[in-house]
Design a protein around this nucleic acid. Structure first.
Lengths: 217, 217
DNA sequence: AAATAAAATTAGGAATGCCTAAATTTAACT
DNA sequence: AGTTAAATTTAGGCATTCCTAATTTTATTT
C-alpha cells in the first residue's frame, strides 16, 4: 500500500503532467513545498515501488499503475469536495484543504457510498471532472475566459481551485458554474476584461480570467 | 498541537480510566496493540507535553487539558459515527474503523457542520453519549442486561461498540437502540438468558448480555 | 524475608520523511 | 569550447514512533 505522502506525490505528479509527459524535481518541489533534495529521495522510493519511472536528471513519468493510483486519489478528493458542498453546505473556497486530508483516509466503501449519495456526479464543485473508478477521465471542452474576444457571451464550465481567496472573490461577484458571462470589452493595457454578470459590470484581471474556463453559448 | 498518535493515546487513556483514575502501561499496551516499551516512551513524551501526569511504575492520569483533548476526540469520533449511519447509511458495525481514522483529521469547522446537520445529537449509533464541545459528558443511567433478573422487560439504551462481529449479530436478531426486550429465563449453568424480542425468542450468552446496556421499562 | 514472577522502563535500532550543505550533472552564455 | 548558472542528486542529520532485548522496580509467594 502506498503511504499517505506517496499518494500526494503521485497525485501532484499526475496534475503537473496533465496525465502524460515528464515532471521535473523542481516543479514537484515547488508544488509540494518540499525541498528538492527530499523530493529526489522520495522519487527514488516511488520508482522502486513501480509507480513511476525515473530518468536521473531528466524527470519522472507515472507508470500505468501510478496513473491509476493518482486518478483514484483525485476521484476521492473530488467526490469528497462535492459532498462537502452538497451535503454539508461548505463554500467552494473552503473545501480544498478539507479534501486534501480526507482523500487519503477515505475507504473504498466510503467512496462508493458518497458516490451513490451524490447520484454519481461527473464534476466537482469547481467543475473539475471526477475520474471513474477504473481511472477514466473525460474533460469537457472549454477554454480560459482570457482567450474569449470582446462581444461574445460564454458559460462558466470550470474555475481553477488553486487559490481559495480567488474562489471567494469570484463567487462574491456572482460567478458560479453554468453562469453566463458577457464580455463587453478587453483592456489592452493590462489584458483585463470588462464583463457583465447578472446585469452587473465588473473588471476582471487577466490572471483571474485565465483561471475561469468557459464554453461558447 | 497533539499528533494523531498522541490523540489516540489520550482517547484510550480516557476510556480506560472512564474519566478518572490511573491507567497502567500494560492496559494501554493491550488496548492499543503497541508494545509496553513503546507505550512507556510515549507516556514520557505526553507527560512532558502536559496532557497527563506519570508516576513511574504506577501509571498515568490525564490532566484537565488531557481530558479536554480526549473528550474532543471522542466527540468527533461519535459525531462522525452518527453521520455515517444517518447520512451515508452505514451499518452500526461498519462505522468504528472509519471513525477511528477520521476523528484525527476532522477540522473544528467540520465538527460544527456535522453537529448542525445532525441536529445536535446527544448519543451516537451505539447509544454512547456525545461529549459537548466544552467537554461535558452526561451518561444516561443504564445497567448491563446480564444484571437484569428473569421476568422483567427492559429497553436497550446502549450497545458496546468494542466488537464489530457482535454488533452485527446483535442487529441480526433484532436488537437496536430503544428496542424492548423481555427476559424470560436465566440459565444457571452458563449465565445465558432466554429473551423475547419482537415475538421471537433467543438465547443470549452472558458475554453478549454484559455488552448490552438497558433501562427498566 | 528471600526468591521468583510480573510489570515497567531504558538501551539500541529501524523505517519514514523531512532538512541543509556539498557534490554532481546538465544547460546556457559568452 | 569553456565558464558559469541552474537543476538534481548524494551525504549526513533529525524527529517521530515503532520494535526487541536487557534492566530495573514492584508484587507475590513460599
Amino acid at each position: 500500500m502506498a503511504s499517505e505522502q506517496s499518494e500526494n506525490y503521485l497525485k501532484n505528479i499526475y496534475k503537473l503532467s496533465s496525465g502524460e509527459g515528464k515532471v521535473t524535481t523542481s516543479s514537484l518541489s515547488d508544488k509540494l513545498q518540499i525541498s528538492p533534495a527530499s523530493v529526489s529521495e522520495m522519487i527514488k522510493k516511488l520508482a522502486e515501488e513501480g509507480t513511476l519511472t525515473h530518468t536521473p536528471y531528466k524527470g519522472v513519468e507515472l507508470t500505468d499503475e501510478g496513473k491509476k493510483l493518482a486518478l483514484r486519489i483525485i476521484r476521492k478528493h473530488r467526490l469528497w469536495e462535492m459532498f462537502l458542498v452538497e451535503v454539508l453546505h461548505f463554500r467552494w473556497d473552503e473545501i480544498d484543504d478539507e479534501a486534501e486530508r480526507f482523500e487519503h483516509i477515505m475507504s473504498d466503501k466510503m467512496e462508493d457510498k458518497i458516490d451513490h449519495a451524490l447520484g454519481h456526479p461527473l464534476i466537482d464543485p469547481h467543475g473539475d471532472p471526477i475520474p471513474t473508478k477504473d481511472g477514466e477521465l473525460k474533460c469537457p471542452m472549454s477554454h480560459p475566459m482570457s482567450d474569449v474576444r470582446a462581444g461574445s457571451t460564454v458559460r462558466v464550465v470550470r474555475v481553477s481551485d488553486s487559490n481559495s481567496e480567488m474562489l471567494q472573490y469570484v463567487a462574491s461577484i456572482g460567478i458560479s458554474l453554468n453562469k453566463e458571462i458577457h464580455i463587453k470589452q478587453k483592456m489592452n493595457f493590462d489584458n483585463s476584461m470588462l464583463v457583465k454578470i447578472d446585469n452587473n459590470e465588473f473588471n476582471i484581471s487577466s490572471i483571474i480570467a485565465s483561471n475561469i474556463f468557459v464554453e461558447n453559448v
